[in-house]
Design a protein around this nucleic acid. Structure first.
Lengths: 262, 262
DNA sequence: GTCATTCAAG
DNA sequence: CTTGAATGAC
């Protein structure tokens, strides 16, 4: 089973790119982030036309996640609340960043982790709060469903300096020790491991390049889109790759897809 | 000599349409309105590349006029001020709506007449004030230069009900009696005549269709883009036509070119 | 740099 | 309905 993740930075603007990519790369499951559209305006048809079931959780202008799956998903869960409860979730489900569903007792969790703006900002605190609840969510999800987890999406965190074109100061958003630790804690709680690093140890592999200052042209990239797998899935994983081609297209997303095969 | 007028509703957005149209219709002179760009950002090169001299008077976001001419223009005059003086012009040259130049003692005056919003509004008063100064401008231009005039552009006035898909109430902007009278006064003062009506008497010929409510699809058009000629030029005119094709393109301007041959 | 939104204009 | 600007986000 091939599971891809792609922050598309507006599904309406990227509709053609995504459809063409799926035709050339007919993955079983595609997890999208930053769809930036309310559910009623989501362009389902083009993807249903090529055989995908479409599951979405969107909002106006910001965030928004979706899962496309050739096999219908079982037990689709939107947001943290159904698992951890409204008390623990607080305001965190106002932003649409979490959707999950299962295929044959493999649970796919699609995340768009908050960016955090800058270290120490209000948005950074929000990111840290969000990651804490994410830990609760994954742990309870695991306990309740007894399913293996494939937790993928745009994490807005490069776990290691290896995942960045150049080591960054500790104050750099997406690379600061505090957010790295927060993510590491989440991973430990559910025994998640980075699928990409099962197969590739070198640095220089990225999934995101800033639109600004020719980030892509100069290959100043970050690997911030990940697949994290529970032990049995991790053992079964046969590949995890990044397809840079979509980032070369006209009017691309700033992210490119990562694909895990299990 | 062929002189065309075309409100392009942003020259940057319409660059390809205009260039392709000129390649297929190599008129001697093309008068543009609503270029919507400051002079330093005007895309001169593509038009110079195909043999046109480019004369512009633009501003940010709104209005803006330009003349493309295969023959260099003589004595280019921008705005009312050089002819009628700053006192009479007042604030009317803040909006870039007037540019003129001569070829062989034929003076081409390119106008973007204010729209006027709605009858009785502040903008309507501005339109009427503007038309009054236009009369002064044309009269003095005529006297000073002793040139024949081709006054063309987007007049935002349909002089007769024949020029509208359906007769309109007297309160309808672009068809109200007061603005029609104001334009008629201008024409009388300089003995200008409508080139189009030398050749075509039927109704049903339009140069503008509102983007809203499928104006073009339903052929709910207006003829508001005109060529007005002084007597000797009017006598010499051999044709005046409207080319609807550009209005059919993808992402068209709401106006289409009118072409007079003298 | 790119996107969606809101606004003003037509 | 389409455009450009201004904003905020990333």
């Amino acid at each position: 089973m091939k599971i891809a993740t792609w922050n598309v930075n507006s599904i309406r603007t990227r509709q053609t790119h995504v459809k063409n990519w799926l035709k050339a790369n007919p993955v079983d499951v595609l997890c999208l982030q930053e769809t930036k559209v309310i559910d009623q305006d989501f362009p389902r048809q083009p993807f249903e036309d090529i055989g995908y079931n479409v599951y979405i959780s969107g909002q106006k202008a910001y965030n928004g996640v979706a899962i496309f799956s050739q096999t219908p998903l079982e037990d689709v869960i939107i947001g943290f609340t159904p698992i951890v409860g409204a008390d623990k979730t607080g305001d965190l489900d106002e932003q649409k960043r979490v959707i999950s569903g299962a295929i044959n007792d493999i649970r796919i969790v699609n995340l768009y982790v908050p960016n955090g703006a800058s270290v120490g900002s209000e948005k950074y605190d929000y990111k840290l709060r969000w990651l804490e609840v994410l830990g609760d969510y994954l742990q309870q999800l695991r306990e309740k469903t007894q399913q293996e987890l494939c937790v993928c999406g745009d994490f807005n965190i490069a776990l290691s300096d290896q995942d960045i074109y150049k080591p960054k100061p500790k104050t750099q958003i997406m690379a600061s020790p505090t957010e790295r630790d927060a993510l590491q804690t989440v991973l430990s709680r559910v025994e998640l491991q980075d699928a990409f690093r099962k197969f590739t140890e070198e640095s220089g592999h990225y999934t995101w390049w800033d639109y600004r200052r020719g980030g892509f042209t100069h290959n100043r990239g970050w690997r911030i889109d990940h697949h994290y797998l529970t032990p049995n899935l991790y053992k079964r994983a046969v590949s995890c790759t990044i397809d840079i081609e979509p980032r070369r297209l006209e009017k691309p997303s700033d992210h490119t897809p990562a694909i895990a095969e299990i």
